[in-house]
Computed example of a mutant assay.
Amino acid sequence: MNRERELIELINKHMPRSSSQLNTIFESDSEILMFQGKGLVYNIDEFSETDLLREDDPYALGWNMAAGSISDILASGGRPKFYAHSMVVRDSWTMDFVEKLAQGIAGVLKEAGAAFIGGDFGISPTWRYTGSVIGDMNGQAMLRSGAKVRDGIYLTGPIGGGNVEAALKLYGQNLLVKQLTGPWKTFFPLRIKEAELIKRYSHCCIDTSDGVFNALGIISEMSGTGFAVSSLPYVKSGLLLAKVLNLPKEMLFLGECGEYELLFTLGEEVEDEFAREAGDKKLRFHKLGQVKEQGIKSLCQKDRTFDLSTYTLRARDYADPMDYLRNVADFLAKV
């Protein structure tokens, strides 16, 4: 068990719970509630410098933090309605920077149809941001559990966008990286239309805020299953960056700075119908692989298969992210 999970369980065992709450701890991306006969979902997410989001574009930074906060609501099958935040800005940020940051947040809320209802504000030598979202829940919520052996595993977009963002933060002073990637911008997706379709066919969904591998691991743990994936749809910028940095592309899959896509499972009996409706709606999804028996965690490439059942590295266990990246690369070289 990882330390973060141990601490969450330690704290939660002392907290009073409500009979109106429908989910258990870790069971869903959002907290699911019944309030006066109506379904609600609630989420709170924190961001800081440790999340390795670049700050050169304040609009993109604001967009990504708000999109990340709302993503959990979508992964639970809800629709965001009210949004609040606690914003602590760095004391060196200009008025223009803060205004563009706010415009990025507002851009997400407008696209999602959510209203801003207030929050808290502070100034500090280091920045922090916490987004808090309340959403409507119509019908049954989607959980992290419920995957069944032989289900298909799907993703709403390419793999690695968040890890590319982190790499550009970590390797930004590399002259070749700087020259090559100077104009690159990362905007996390807002998968509202996709989430509406997914909810009609699946009850098992999670966002990839901590990376695709971790998302698969959580679904497997909660469902008592495993997975086998192949032909992964890596983001093109990630493949190029991995080549420039001489790092294995599989780090885009294992890395924990996620792309905030939605990962979900579909029963064999509905896959064809889902694909037809997705095509009619011009929505694109990527099939990654299949749910397998418990204990199986494999990544199949054209030239080799990685057995990931013994992989236990976690970025949060390292004070220096570069040490973490070296250990991930070493694992991939030896497995």
Rank of each mutant, 00 (worst) to 15 (best):
M1F: 11
M1L: 13
P16D: 07
S19M: 10
S20N: 11
S28E: 01
S28R: 02
D29Q: 08
Y42V: 12
N43F: 09
N43P: 09
F47V: 00
F47W: 09
E49R: 12
D51Y: 06
G62W: 05
S69D: 03
D72H: 14
S92M: 11
E99F: 14
E99G: 13
L101S: 08
G104D: 04
I105R: 09
L109K: 00
L109N: 05
A112V: 01
G113Y: 01
S124Y: 11
I134V: 04
G135I: 00
A141E: 02
K148E: 14
G172K: 03
Q173W: 12
P183Q: 10
W184T: 12
R191S: 15
L197Q: 06
R200A: 15
S202T: 02
T208N: 02
L216I: 00
G217R: 04
I219S: 01
S220Q: 04
S230Q: 06
S231Y: 10
Y234N: 08
V244G: 09
L245H: 02
E256C: 03
E256H: 00
C257Y: 15
G258D: 03
E261D: 07
T265K: 01
G267H: 07
E273Q: 15
R276F: 14
E277W: 06
A278H: 05
L283V: 01
K287S: 11
D307V: 00
T312S: 15
T312W: 07
M322E: 11
N327F: 09
A329P: 04
F331C: 08
